[in-house]
């Protein structure tokens, strides 16, 4: 379900005036994005459902503080992301590593450049491996990467949502990807496909 920004604003205003039923339209329009963000952050459907509901509920309570400076969805993703980090923290699944990244260079195995198509895993298997690898990332790295590659936010939107410098966002995303690539290689789950000269665009990707 998609709504225009005007419809979104109108629904928000109705909710603020006491018409709580109008909130349902806002939930419906954004639940897929929020749920999938939570799913990648939490790693399982049950926690993702809890986190999504909590995020929407917090959004309902804090709705008056939404000024429309950002997209409503970006505002929601910020809430959802915070809920996920809270839940991970409470569950003791929040093992934060150094975010300075200074120690990364030495521990990062560079993927093997000899690529043999015969050994390449099926795409589905790669996906599975990426999914699992994602859960091994530092939650703050994961957060930035998921907002970019799952939620489809721009660097600027992520910087706004997470209240970070643009440079920090770029750095976290790059490091998250590099670490993920390294994790997969180290696990032996993953042989990188041949370097491609084609650009990899969002949503595209039959080129790998």
């Amino acid at each position: 379900m998609t709504v225009t920004r005007d419809e979104e604003r109108a629904a928000i205003d109705r909710v603020l005036q006491g018409d709580t039923d109008a909130f349902e339209a806002l939930v419906k329009a954004n639940e897929k994005g929020v749920y999938n963000l939570a799913l990648r952050m939490m790693g399982n459907a049950e926690d993702a459902l809890d986190a999504s509901q909590e995020a929407f509920f917090r959004a309902y309570r804090a709705l008056a503080s939404f000024r429309g400076d950002s997209k409503f969805s970006v505002w929601l993703y910020r809430l959802a992301s915070n809920v996920c980090l809270d839940m991970l923290r409470k569950a003791g699944r929040y093992q934060q590593t150094s975010l300075t990244g200074e120690d990364e260079e030495e521990e990062l195995p560079i993927p093997d450049s000899r690529f043999d198509p015969q050994e390449a895993l099926e795409r589905a298997e790669v996906r599975q491996a990426v999914r699992e690898g994602l859960q091994k990332l530092d939650p703050l790295f994961r957060e930035a990467l998921v907002l970019r590659d799952v939620s489809g936010l721009t660097y600027e939107e992520i910087a706004q949502a997470l209240d970070l410098e643009l440079g920090t966002v770029k750095s976290r995303i790059f490091r998250a990807r590099r670490r993920l690539a390294a994790l997969l290689t180290a696990d032996g789950n993953f042989s990188p496909p041949a370097p491609s000269n084609e650009r990899t665009k969002k949503g595209g990707g039959e080129d790998a």
Binding site: G33, Y35, I110, P111, A181
Partner: peptide, 20 residues
């Protein structure tokens, strides 16, 4: 080159994954 192919694969994989 190896790093780039790995980064691309990871990124494509994340983006291609169907939204649940």
């Amino acid at each position: 080159a190896a790093l780039f192919s790995a980064l691309s694969a990871v990124t494509v994989s994340l983006r291609e994954e169907d939204m649940a």
